[in-house]
Design a protein around this nucleic acid. Structure first.
Ligand code: FES
Ligand code: FES
Lengths: 166, 166
DNA sequence: GTCTTTCTTGACTAACTTAGTAAATAATGT
DNA sequence: ACATTATTTACTAAGTTAGTCAAGAAAGAC
């Protein structure tokens, strides 16, 4: 029962918040960061994400070499590469662990064995679906998202001083 | 901790067992059914799926007009249409509720409101990903799976009498 | 060198979802 | 009548998600 109305499933095959937040956060660093590090609290405020939770996501992205961090005053996070060289697919690979829709595709990676592989008629279908998804997400870069934001007229907030009168 | 080794995520954006089992079960009805209804217990045995759980999945598929059912002795499930007219995408639409990777794509359907839609740079990316997935799954039919099974040499089990010596 | 800012690490948890089980019932063929 | 098979509804254990919380470490400002 809970929050579903009359047995209607919403949609699964869904992205976790880690991925959704992760992509938006990296975009935010790129869009609002003027060379300097961008701080968690500002990203969290602009993107409406819990700062504590965002920090967890950033650890993974930093370990994966997508962003870099700097501690202390005037510290924050920056992109590790130029936005046109960061693919959305990379971020999702980190936050979701990959694009396999089922574990059977990759028994070693998943750690689960499937003894139906030899006779399975669906395995390659799932595999191909995952590959299509991966290719698509790898075709979109952070720069693309920034371009889109400019077209949408999203205001940049580069200057720290602009925050005084909020 | 649980069963993940050292923080390694397996892969999400994953299909639920309802979808995986559902597709395999419909394929099974098509492949092993010789005109007659195919019984849950046989499908469950061949596909190694819990019969009780399979019944739940079949209710949805029947309501969606993908399979038909008949009660009583010699009852069972049959395809509602020819296998070349049943798309894998149809089955997944029923079992997963659709292909939207995030709820923001379809606020009415999901019942959740998102107030960032106007300024959101990722929404259309997620939407396009879902559409690609949907198109792909709609391009595969149950007949395709049967053809694949024949190529793989999966043995048919059409005759009820062949089950005596199991 | 102390203080403040900001990231870092790891433990913890409430709410929810998944992947089932179970039981009573209804229909149908023999 | 009886056995077989699907139908419906209720229930549940285990796992996952989406966070919170607390203590600590690095770096700059003074
Ligand atoms: S390969 Fe594991 S069920 Fe298809
Ligand atoms: S549309 Fe809801 S967060 Fe993008």
């Amino acid at each position: 029962m809970t929050n579903l109305v009359n047995n209607v499933i919403f949609s699964f095959m869904r992205l976790s918040t880690k991925s959704r937040y992760g992509v938006r956060a990296v975009f935010d660093i790129s869009y609002h960061g003027g060379g300097d590090g961008v701080q968690v609290k500002d990203i969290a405020r602009r993107q409406e994400i819990s700062p504590r939770y965002l920090e967890q996501i950033f650890q993974k992205l930093r370990d994966a070499g997508i962003i870099t961090s700097k501690r202390g005053p005037q510290g924050g996070y920056s992109l590790a590469r130029k936005p046109q060289n960061i693919k959305v697919g990379e971020i999702i690979r980190v936050t979701e662990g990959g694009f396999d829709p089922v574990f059977c595709i990759n028994p070693e990676k998943s750690g689960k064995h499937c003894d139906r592989i030899a006779e399975c008629v669906t395995r390659l279908i799932w595999k191909e679906a995952g590959e299509k998804l991966e290719d698509f997400f790898d075709s979109v870069t952070i720069q693309d998202l920034c371009d889109r934001a400019e077209r949408l007229g999203v205001q940049k907030e580069q200057d720290r001083s602009s925050m005084y009168y909020i």
